[in-house]
């Protein structure tokens, strides 16, 4: 709801600037689609007929870190020079768990959980922290003022702050000093009908095996992720907060 209101606010600003007409012309001409299989034409806005989600099978996770490496490369997160170890960005990390009662050990990746009702979106003063209609939670860095309240609010430690000026960013993953950032489910890939980099890397690692990460539309009953969830279930981290996360875990 909040996100939609913000979009409306933007629209009003454009109309105010007399740009609405220009915008109409700008997107109207036929645009060549670069993929026939694309779920959404490039000139159409995303809507809530889909909700993107990821299912992670913690039983299969061997803590190989391939998802982390793939993420760092996809978003160019390794180009720091000054930030110390606790100041560097991580969109995704492997968390090692040890059950205090039983001693059972396991590992699983944790990233932005893409909540349906994200605390980071609630607290952001400018609306930079936002949830797209298709369920992807991200930072609109154009209006992020770097107050870091979203980092205080996130229950998953999913967000990082860019502590230094950076160069050589990946063109599809702009990021810079003074803004907060986090996993955006590889929104540039998803819009291009590709899977997030971590999912690709994980399933490559488990190529001999059954997939350990599923990406897909939670609204579509026939998607693989929905079938898997229906059959085997999928837990949320900190389900007690009632955030209805888009990232689910099996074997947790």
């Amino acid at each position: 709801m909040t996100t939609e209101n913000n979009i409306d606010a933007y629209r009003r600003k454009f109309v105010g600037g007399g740009l609405a007409a220009a915008a109409g012309i700008a997107i109207a001409p036929g645009v060549i689609l670069n993929s026939v299989a694309q779920a959404k034409p490039a000139d159409k806005p995303v809507d809530d007929s889909v909700r993107w989600g990821i299912l992670i099978d913690a039983n299969k996770c061997d803590g190989c870190n391939d998802c982390v490496t793939a993420c760092n490369e996809e978003h160019g997160l390794d180009n720091y020079t000054n930030s110390n170890e606790s100041q560097r960005t991580q969109y995704i990390r492997v968390v090692n768990l040890r059950d205090k009662a039983t001693g059972h050990e396991q590992a699983l990746p944790v990233m932005c959980q893409h909540c349906e009702t994200p605390p980071c979106v609630d607290v952001c003063p400018t609306g930079a922290s936002m949830r797209r209609a298709d369920g992807i939670v991200q930072v609109n860095m154009h209006i992020c003022i770097g107050c870091r309240y979203c980092m205080m609010a996130c229950p998953y430690k999913a967000r990082s702050f860019v502590h230094e000026a950076i160069t050589d960013q990946r063109p599809s993953s702009p990021r810079g000093k003074g803004c907060v950032e986090s996993c955006n489910m590889c929104v540039h890939r998803v819009d291009n009908d590709e899977q997030p980099a971590c999912v690709v890397a994980c399933n490559k690692h488990h190529a001999e095996d059954e997939p350990a990460m599923f990406f897909g539309d939670l609204r579509d009953e026939n998607s693989e992720i929905s079938k898997q969830l229906k059959k085997f279930g999928g837990k949320q981290i900190r389900a007690d907060l009632g955030l209805n996360t888009g990232v689910r875990y099996r074997g947790l």
Partner: peptide, 20 residues
Amino acid sequence: KKIKHQRDLTVIEGVRTKKH
């Protein structure tokens, strides 16, 4: 203006036209 307009369309609504 065109770039700024496109930036909001892309980030907020996921419009991925390349023109602007």
